[in-house]
Simulated assay, not measured.
Amino acid sequence: MFKNRRDRYNRDVSSKILIRRVNMASQERGLFAEERQQRILAILSERSRVLVNELSEYFGVSTATLRNDLRELEQEGKLRRTHGGAVAIESRIPEQLAEAAISEHHNAKQAIGKAAAELVHDDDVLFCDSGSTTLEFIRALAGRRNLTIITNDFLIASESERVITQSNIIFLGGSVRTGFHYTVGSATIDALSCLSAPTAFLATSAFSFERGFSIHTLDLALFKQMLIDRSEQHIMLLDSSKIGAFTTVNFAQLSDISTLIVDDFISEKDRIRLEDTEDGPNIIIAPSK
């Protein structure tokens, strides 16, 4: 189903862009190969996918010439050829230890955390996923009362106790992953399987429209899937720097998420694509100022 929605979206966007550029097409004819290839990369940066037949019409050159262009760009590592066209190359996000992740894109994470905190009320019960953005969410809950926080993250448990008045913290035991401040494994999953909460606040290492949300390890992916299974509302906190990237293990698609909160550094292209996704989540843009 997700693939069908994605294909339909790409076809719609493809048509819209070509219509918008029809009056500019004459300016793109007669280009040298290097100039044409730069234009191809510019189009890919806008919509992540191109078709040979459309490019041939747009540039006024043969499909054979366009295939040569795409082959050369692929050899340079600038795109990936597919049947009938090419797609943009997504970046793979390397895994960071907790302390390094906390300091990166801090303003964006604070903005997301503050926006997420506005969805929480006194006496709520919630799951809180491990992550640097969810840590900022917990810090933004200062002043709330009588919250029940269920988490597998040491730092989140500690901050919950510090900032939330009369907080009830349920810490999920298991195997500690050194350098990351969270527990994983069968014991963690077993403990979580006995619990439920109306809302889960989730984090991710990467997101792409083609692959969905992903994380670096299978154990953590299984934990996040269990958080989704044991809750009704699924709120994803997404730092926009993670859009257009992927890691090792997929754990959710956009259709699995109820609300997605992203910072206002998001590109206009990605914002529109998120908001136009059929059956997608409610989108909240968190102001950074």
Results as ranks from 00 to 15, higher is better:
Val163Thr: 05
Glu95Asp: 11
Asp122Met: 08
Ile170Ser: 08
Thr133Pro: 00
Ala142Gln: 12
Ile156His: 03
Thr165Ser: 14
Ala140Thr: 02
Asn152Leu: 04
Glu118Leu: 12
Val163Cys: 04
Ile170His: 05
Arg162Ser: 04
Asn146Gly: 07
Ala100Gly: 09
Ser158Arg: 13
Phe127Arg: 06
Cys128Phe: 06
Phe137Glu: 05
Gln96Met: 15
Thr134Met: 10
His106Cys: 10
Ile169Leu: 10
Ile150Pro: 06
Arg145Thr: 10
Leu97Met: 13
Asp123Val: 08
Gln166Phe: 13
Phe137Ile: 03
Ile164Val: 12
Glu99Pro: 05
Ile138Pro: 02
Ser158Thr: 09
Ala117Cys: 05
Ser160Leu: 06
Ala140Met: 06
Arg162Leu: 11
Ile156Tyr: 01
Ile156Ser: 13
Glu95Lys: 14
Arg144Leu: 06
Ser158Trp: 09
Lys109Ser: 05
Ala101Trp: 05
His121Thr: 02
Gly131Tyr: 02
Asn152Ser: 15
Leu141Met: 15
Ala117Thr: 04
Leu119Gln: 12
Ile150Thr: 08
Phe154Glu: 12
Glu159Asn: 02
Phe154Cys: 13
Glu136Pro: 01
Glu99Tyr: 09
Ser103Ile: 09
Gly113Pro: 08
Gly143Met: 02
Ala140Trp: 01
Asp129Pro: 01
Ile164Asn: 02
Ser103Val: 13
Glu161Leu: 15
Ala101Arg: 14
Phe171Val: 00
Glu136Leu: 00
Asp124Val: 04
Ala142Lys: 13
Lys114Trp: 03
Ile138Ser: 04
Glu159Val: 14
His105Asn: 15
Ala116Gln: 03
Ser130Tyr: 01
Ala98Pro: 00
Ala100His: 10
Phe154Thr: 08
Phe137Arg: 06
Ser160Cys: 07
Glu159Tyr: 00
Gln166His: 15
Leu126Lys: 03
Ala111Trp: 00
Leu119Ile: 08
Ala140Ile: 01
Phe127His: 05
Asn146Leu: 00
Leu135Lys: 02
Asn168Ala: 09
Gly143Cys: 01
Ile170Lys: 04
Ala111Phe: 02
Thr151Gly: 03
Lys114Met: 09
Ala108Ile: 07
His121Asp: 14
Asp153Leu: 06
Val163Trp: 11
Ala157Asn: 01
Val163Ser: 03
Lys114Gly: 07
Thr165Trp: 10
Asn107Met: 11
Lys109Val: 04
Arg139Ile: 01
Asp124His: 14
His105Asp: 15
Leu135Ala: 03
Ala108His: 10
Ser167Ile: 07
Ala108Gly: 11
Ala116Ser: 06
Phe137Tyr: 10
Ala157Val: 07
Ser103His: 11
Arg139Cys: 09
Ile149Phe: 07
Gly131Pro: 10
Asn107Thr: 08
Ser132Asn: 05
Ser158Asp: 11
Ser132Arg: 01
Gln110Leu: 13
Asn168Gln: 14
